[in-house]
């Protein structure tokens, strides 16, 4: 299973990456919108974990839209619930509030990927 991770804080990214590997997943890590888009264009992604606020004033919104277009499930991982309330609500994705254990976040991402696969198989 391939999980795309967009996170601008290296330590959090690393923690998520380890947790994903523990579950036998392949972690595809990006710390900016352009990196995430490049991965989306070249890899098959099963689900994604997106940090909402990124460095240099970027947000995960362009990546979220691209995932929506491709029908790939994702969850938002953010400590900044208030500021992006509108953004987050507009995306309609589940939000996992920071700080949450990396294992919890990965477990949610895996569940999302499985649910999506099941839907595709049944549909």
């Amino acid at each position: 299973m391939n999980i795309l991770m967009l996170e601008d804080e290296p330590l959090i990214l690393m923690d998520l990456e380890f947790a994903a590997e523990d579950e036998g997943c392949r972690a595809l890590c990006a710390s900016s919108v352009s990196e995430a888009m490049a991965i989306l264009d070249s890899e098959r992604i099963d689900s994604a974990i997106l940090d909402v606020t990124l460095k240099d004033g970027e947000t995960c919104v362009p990546v979220a839209r691209a995932l929506d277009e491709r029908g790939i499930p994702y969850l938002l991982h953010s400590g900044d619930l208030d500021r992006h309330d509108e953004t987050v609500r507009a995306l309609g994705a589940e939000l996992v509030a920071k700080p949450a254990s990396a294992a919890t976040v990965i477990a949610r991402a895996i569940k999302y990927a499985r649910d999506a696969h099941r839907q595709t198989a049944n549909g």
Binding site: E9, L11, I12, F18, A19, G79, D80, A97, P99, A102
Partner: peptide, 21 residues
């Protein structure tokens, strides 16, 4: 206050990452 709240939450997430790693 909102910025501070964001940074504190982020800091807890980073500390957690350091401990795990």
């Amino acid at each position: 206050a909102r910025e501070l709240s964001h940074r504190i939450k982020n800091m807890f997430a980073v500390i957690s990452g350091i401990v795990n790693i």
